[in-house]
Design a protein around this nucleic acid. Structure first.
Lengths: 152, 152
DNA sequence: TTTTCGCTCACCCGAAAGGATGAATCGATG
DNA sequence: CATCGATTCATCCTTTCGGGTGAGCGAAAA
């Protein structure tokens, strides 16, 4: 909700900025008109000048819009677990935790310490994980876990 | 070299297309001018119309340019080995090969078969790798290898 | 309430991985 | 030529992993 309000606010601010820029440009055009151009150059040149200026403005505005979009995309490569794969393979929360720590390069003993479990329990979880992921080694499990978007 | 020529060609084609588009727009403007507008509406309205049209053109052109760039980036996430890290850590070609296969989830025996080596040789390479990467387990080596852009 | 399921832990055994050390070969480099 | 580094292979030993099995416990579902 807050995000939506913020987005609207940003867009309003954008609109105001672009509106001010356009207004400023119109004043500049009026100034050019009365100072130099209109009587000395041809109408086509004047139109062309306006066209070029506004093409530039358009490109600038377009770039602003698209680049801000891209920044949003790039600063939010947030990982979300693929719940479909998770439930399809019947992987429990605990098993996923173990898989995550496994992928961080921890040994079973270290995982046991981290999760306050016994080594045997961790081994049970890993064994079940290997069965569910249909792999034989932890390195394969890590690979497959990443492929299936179960871990970042 | 071929890539450069191709790029230049693409840009030339872009230029021609945009040029044609602009020319077409000028003709449209002339047509509007002689058919309807110039005598009936004010000069400001006419200028505004041109401005709006060319802003749209600019946005369109800008989007075209930036989006094609983005497509190029997205369709070419080609992996290149970070040679600095490679030489800094004194990792040899053979060791890198072993690391790569290791990251694919292969066992030492499978790596030995794949590279036509003995198991002992592979174990030597892995041991040296762990020393150079300053890790204790193959899972950590894989992690660090990816962080250092040694493997994809 | 009984069953089911996830989580926990244990024991055993074999396979794989890791650590340490020594050594032979071969190409490049001084 | 002699030396150095990369590569290859070996042996011995310890630790970690992986597979199989059994079992207790607690919460949720039937």
């Amino acid at each position: 909700m807050i995000l939506i309000i913020h987005t609207i606010f940003v867009w309003m601010r954008k609109g105001i900025i672009y509106g001010l820029a356009l207004a400023a440009l119109f004043f500049v055009l009026r100034w050019i008109e009365y100072k130099f151009v209109i009587r000395e150059f041809s109408r086509e040149f004047y139109i062309g000048l306006i066209a070029v200026i506004f093409v530039v403005v358009g490109v600038w505005a377009g770039r602003k819009l698209t680049t801000t979009k891209r920044i949003v995309k790039e600063t939010a490569p947030l990982f979300v677990v693929n719940q479909e794969n998770l439930s399809r393979l019947e992987i429990s929360k605990r098993e996923l935790e173990v898989l995550d720590l496994m992928a961080q390069g921890l040994s079973n003993q270290q995982i046991a310490d981290r999760l306050a479990l016994s080594l045997n329990t961790v081994k049970t979880h890993t064994s079940n994980l290997f069965i569910r992921l249909d792999v034989k080694r932890r390195t394969q499990a890590i690979q497959k876990g990443k492929d299936l978007k179960l871990i970042p």
